[in-house]
């Protein structure tokens, strides 16, 4: 990563917890390092938001959330996040479907609600100043509720933030993707912020 503080700047308890995580999973995920570092500034609250938006959705299932996250990462050309979120989505779909969806969503055997949603989110990612009310029409025509669209918008916002952090700080690509995907599929993001002692705020 580009900043030394993200490798060596954590407090003692966090470093100890990272050692344990590394022993069991082979790596400390880069988002965990960033979100945990001086977590009073950003990570503590962001991890709560992350868990709520990505794992406590009323409409979208976990695999659908992860597929949306992977596709938004593709819109932002973030290799790190594409790889990680695909690895999580695969626990809900087969890998062939995930690959087809990532390549050409309209060719994949997936619910039309996801297809219309990603078209809207793609525009929100790439041309946010041009998004207008007409862009929402296909979503409501497909039967999506206001709540479902709202949840998708939050997922989009989260990924637009995380994709930029990954590229700016240069997250190394994750290893042990199977293990990581399975863990995040089952446990979500509530453990992404390692609290430790709050020596530095």
């Amino acid at each position: 990563m580009r900043l030394t503080i993200h490798e060596t700047g954590h407090n003692l308890l966090q470093k100890l917890q990272f050692k344990i995580i590394k022993t069991f999973s082979g790596q400390v995920p880069s988002p965990m390092k960033i979100i945990s570092y001086r977590n009073a500034f950003f990570g503590r609250k962001y991890s709560v938001y992350l868990q709520k938006a990505m794992r406590e959705t009323k409409f979208w299932t976990v695999p659908e959330v992860e597929l949306l996250a992977a596709y938004i990462s593709k819109c932002n050309e973030c290799k790190y996040c594409i790889s990680d979120h695909k690895a999580i989505a695969i626990y809900g779909y087969n890998s062939e479907l995930v690959e087809t969806f990532m390549d050409k969503p309209e060719n994949s055997d997936i619910d039309n609600k996801l297809n219309v949603t990603i078209k809207f989110l793609e525009k929100l990612c790439k041309l946010p100043s041009e998004v207008n009310e007409n862009d929402l029409k296909p979503l409501f025509d497909s039967g999506l509720s206001k709540q479902a669209v709202e949840e998708a918008i939050h997922i989009c916002g989260i990924m637009c933030t995380m994709n930029r952090l990954a590229d700016a700080f240069n997250f190394p690509m994750s290893t042990n993707l199977d293990k990581l995907g399975k863990f995040l599929f089952k446990n979500g993001y509530k453990l992404v912020c390692i609290k430790g002692f709050n020596i530095k705020s």
């Binding site: 946010p128 939050h154 930029r164």
Partner: peptide
């Protein structure tokens, strides 16, 4: 963090306003 957060948060505000 501020820049990345603004990028995501502004998009959320745009989307929610449309909604």
């Amino acid at each position: 963090i501020v820049a990345a957060f603004s990028s995501g948060e502004t998009r959320i505000q745009i989307g929610l306003k449309l909604l």
